[in-house]
């Protein structure tokens, strides 16, 4: 899981556009409150799909999935483990 998170953090660092940098944010910090725009969140989804070689199902394409590093890691791990998409 920590590998997953560090990879997610790399993506967020490159594409998140956080004014204070991703380093300043904890795994549970609210990324939207930290300045994540809806445009950037789509760019991050794309970059994550590329980085992890996966596709987010539509059921995960919502605000909650990208709320925090932990939330993204949970979604990514779920797909990697082949878990059924969250409803």
């Amino acid at each position: 899981m920590s590998d997953v998170k560090s990879k997610i953090r790399e993506v967020l660092a490159a594409r998140g556009g956080f004014p204070g940098g991703i380093e300043a944010l904890g795994d549970q910090s609210d990324l939207y409150a930290a300045g994540l725009s809806s445009f950037a969140s789509v760019q991050i989804m794309l970059a994550l799909e590329e980085a992890f070689d996966l596709e987010f199902p539509d059921s995960l394409l919502n605000r909650k999935t990208f709320q925090s590093v932990d939330a993204i890691a949970g979604a990514v791990q779920g797909i990697l483990d082949g878990a059924p998409a969250a409803e």
Partner: peptide, 11 residues
């Protein structure tokens, strides 16, 4: 512009 961005990931 917003929709075209969303369509990059929307199925």
């Amino acid at each position: 512009g917003n929709t075209s961005n969303l369509l990059l990931v929307h199925k």
